[in-house]
């Protein structure tokens, strides 16, 4: 186990920000902390990063309590804060030089790692420029470069795609997958369900300072999904056919959207084969068929009664 968080408690006066948060992260994972704003994600990773003291519980990295081995543990962490944390008056190269030296890199190794980090984030051509003139996406990439150049065992990323364009966001998500392939373990917090679904191998859903569910995406959706949704693109729409589909006992709803049928029914009742048979009998050609599984958004909604973006 790379990181263990057990019964973590954090209070701000009377407000209980973290209420016995517990989770564990294995080496090589991309672990997602998913939750709405104010759920306790940033507080959790601030505590893991030794930035914030805590009131109870324990955090262990490779079996060592982080409070007692603070410097040793910090050396193995790479932090990508939610805010862009760069010296605006230093060049991209100087920013990396600064943070590389803080993590003990020197000489040719430092130069090598800076070049590697710049190349990885696609900023080699802009290394002599100051971040003042960078776009939001470029700043975010440099923010990541500063955290990875010392090859940390655990990279902690707090909403690293906030406020950037889709292209930069995609670049960052691909970079995270690449880092993971190269052997880094990653904690990724976000309130963007799609991002977490796309890159995380395991997810903990956090709300009101508590972990309300955790596991792989499949495990989480299995917890709550009792229905499935079929989206079928067909050659022609036949309204009497809609009524026939609705008459299947396990089907709850069938609506027409353009040339598609959206069919919602109970999971595990062979709805797909039943609907296909009806369409074949009616002589309607099936152009495409997609079985949509419940999203983490749906999981969150079911568990909390609220949307992630509420």
């Amino acid at each position: 186990m790379l990181l263990e968080v057990n019964n973590l408690i954090k209070r701000y006066g009377d407000f209980l920000a973290l209420d016995h948060i517990t989770f564990a992260i294995n080496e090589g994972e991309i672990f997602g902390l998913l939750g709405p704003n104010g759920a306790g994600k940033t507080t959790t990773i601030s505590i893991i990063s030794s930035l914030t003291p805590y009131d109870g519980g324990e955090v262990k990295f490779l079996g060592k309590e982080i409070k007692r081995h603070e410097m040793e543990v910090k050396q193995e962490f790479g932090i990508v804060p939610q805010e862009i944390a760069l010296f605006e008056d230093l060049t991209a190269y100087e920013n990396l030089d600064y943070f590389g030296r803080l993590y003990g890199l020197r000489g040719s190794l430092l130069k090598e790692r800076i070049a590697e980090a710049l190349s990885f984030t696609g900023l080699t051509d802009r290394q002599r420029d100051r971040p003042k003139g960078f776009s939001g996406g470029m700043k975010r990439r440099l923010n990541i470069a500063c955290a990875i150049l010392h090859h940390p065992k655990l990279i902690i990323m707090d909403e690293p795609t906030v406020g950037i364009d889709p292209q930069s966001r995609n670049h960052i998500l691909q970079s995270i997958k690449e880092l993971n392939k190269m052997g880094s373990t990653i904690i990724y917090t976000s309130h963007y369900m799609e991002e977490v679904e796309e890159i995380c191998t395991r997810v903990a859903i956090v709300d009101h300072g508590r972990v309300i569910a955790q596991g792989t995406k499949e495990e989480l959706t299995a917890l709550v999904s009792t229905e499935e949704k079929l989206v079928i693109e067909i050659s022609s729409v036949n309204y009497s056919l809609v009524e026939q589909i609705k008459s299947i006992p396990s089907i709850r709803e069938c609506i027409i959207k353009g040339n598609s049928l959206e069919v919602v029914g109970k999971k595990g009742e062979h709805n797909v084969s039943r609907v296909i048979n009806l369409l074949a009998e009616a002589g309607i050609e099936i152009l495409s068929l997609n079985v949509e599984k419940p999203s983490l958004e749906a999981v969150f909604l079911t568990l909390t009664g609220r949307s992630l973006r509420d």
Partner: peptide, 14 residues
């Protein structure tokens, strides 16, 4: 202001 205090606090330096 530029949040680099976060990085400094998270770095292995007293």
């Amino acid at each position: 202001g530029n949040h680099t205090n976060l990085r400094l606090a998270a770095a292995p330096i007293q």
